[in-house]
């Protein structure tokens, strides 16, 4: 039984991590052509991300868009989650469900919707389009994390501070904010990472004017193999791991993922 369990676990780990290991090995390949096991060892393809102007520009575009859209999503989410939690407003709850919807739909539907919208209002390929589109698409994440954070605030703490004469603003600043802030950060981080990796909405909103990293990678894939893509994959995975480790460190990852404390 133990043997069965361990061999299954080993197989699962190999299945999950194997393809990533192959990419990592390929990314250190010294030669320009694809080879596994790699020939020689070099950091050349990592340097290329920062030296080659087009790759670096795409990286910067992606980072800027991810940071702005994550920030916007959190800003839009906070009042909705707060009003739904603090006052139980039915309107806020309806807004909450509406805000979740874009994330559940197949992304291509939202992508096409944004394409039609921005074409109709005459905003052709502005960077802000993709920032807004990603913020709306990923709004579900901060909505959920902020709500979870607020639910973990102990109501008796609020009552206690109110009986001691704190007004609403003081309660918010001294009781609610410190407890809920890490969850708002988690929402920001989730949005940031998913926006960084998102392809189809970026393509349909700004695909012809702004090149984000996923768009550039896909374009490069069509013209054959470039080793830079392998190094970018590794860099992205490292970024993802770092961001989620931060979430795990500063807020409650298990709780966000829906498990019991």
């Amino acid at each position: 039984m133990k043997l069965l369990r361990n061999s299954y676990l080993a197989l699962f780990a190999i299945y999950l991590v194997g393809p990533i290991l192959v990419i990592t090995a390929v990314s250190f390949n010294a030669k320009k052509f694809l080879a596994f096991p790699p020939r020689g060892f070099s950091f050349r393809w990592y340097a290329e991300i920062f030296v080659a102007n087009d790759w670096f520009a795409a990286l910067m575009n992606s980072l800027l868009i991810a940071a702005c859209s994550a920030f916007l999503a959190v800003l839009v989410a906070i009042p909705v989650s707060y009003m739904a939690w603090r006052h139980g407003l039915r309107y806020a709850k309806a807004l909450f469900s509406l805000g979740i919807a874009p994330f559940i739909l197949p992304p291509v539907i939202m992508a096409l919707a944004f394409l039609l919208f921005f074409a109709n209002v005459g905003m052709h390929g502005w960077t802000i389009n993709v920032i807004i589109a990603h913020a709306i698409f990923l709004l579900a994440l901060p909505l959920v994390t902020v709500s979870l954070g607020l639910e973990s605030v102990d109501m008796s703490l609020i009552e206690a501070s109110q009986t001691m004469g704190a007004d609403n603003a003081t309660v918010f600043r001294t009781v609610i904010l410190p407890i809920a802030a890490p969850f708002a950060f988690a929402g920001f981080a989730f949005c940031f990472v998913l926006s960084l990796n998102e392809y189809i909405i970026a393509l349909m909103t700004v695909g012809f004017t702004v090149e984000t990293l996923p768009i550039k990678i896909f374009n490069a894939l069509r013209y054959g193999y470039t080793p830079v893509i392998a190094s970018i994959a590794v860099v992205f995975l490292v970024i993802n791991v770092l961001v989620f480790s931060l979430i795990a460190k500063f807020s409650n990852l298990s709780r966000i993922l829906g498990a019991m404390d």
Partner: peptide, 23 residues
């Protein structure tokens, strides 16, 4: 494990397609 799984889950579909193209 959860951190790793989240990291892989967020990895762009473009990059997953690329790695399987190599595999």
């Amino acid at each position: 494990w959860l951190i790793y799984i989240l990291a892989q889950l967020s990895l762009s579909e473009v990059l997953i397609a690329f790695s399987w193209q190599i595999l």
